[in-house]
Amino acid sequence: MVNPIIKLENLNFYYGVVKALSNITMNFNRNCVTAIIGPSGCGKSTLLRLLNRMNDLIDNTRVEGKVEIDGKDIYSNNVDPVEVRKKVGMVFQKPNPFPKSIYKNIAFGPKINRLARGSKLDDLVEESLKAAALWDEVKDILHHSAMELSGGQQQRLCIARALAMKPEILLMDEPTSALDPISTARIEDLIEDLKEKYSIIIVTHNMQQAARISDFTAFLYLGQLIEYDKTEKIFTNPSNKKTEDYITGRFG
């Protein structure tokens, strides 16, 4: 696996005394889609949230080990988590647009971070909406409320909002689980387009989705990384029996 963007080394994570992740060592590759799969409670979302320090927001948690992004440990003392989150965008299970206009949803982040203003901000909004394959549908209603959009459009708006911050990495936590099949297909297609510019890590319960869109798949079980390999290998001939049993629906 060449050219990693994220390196995890002996990563352990605790909720109080409960160890949720155990000794995870793996690299995430640049400009690839990596899927994290595994049964409920296996630590998928926990692992994802460790990559942009979202777990910092939960009390009584503890991280051990290293998470390096572009060679820099994001958990070292002098790192500002807000800076990490600028570099590592996130999209959640349910679309969560701000109750503001479509334009303001996208412009909010860049504006408060002074990334752009005036006509440059307009350009950034357009560029982000285009990258999220939403521009054609909303270009004439930019100042309408984002809440008027359909669920699938709202989710693409959230992706556009994340992209406006010019992240390098995009984390997606079950981004299509609340969407219908057509909206899901659009997002999946978008993910494949986005990997040219971004490194994408997606948590999904839908194994066929992992098979369709990811280049690499990591299988987690009870907080441990059981198998991590090219997606085509995982879905045709996995090396570990637990992986095989999980993806063929024998347990989970």
């Binding site: 098979a211 995982i234 879905f235 095989e244 993806i247 063929t248």
Partner: peptide, 9 residues
């Protein structure tokens, strides 16, 4: 059923 792994093979 979209079989995978050994089911697919």
């Amino acid at each position: 059923r979209q079989p995978a792994a050994r089911d697919l093979r």
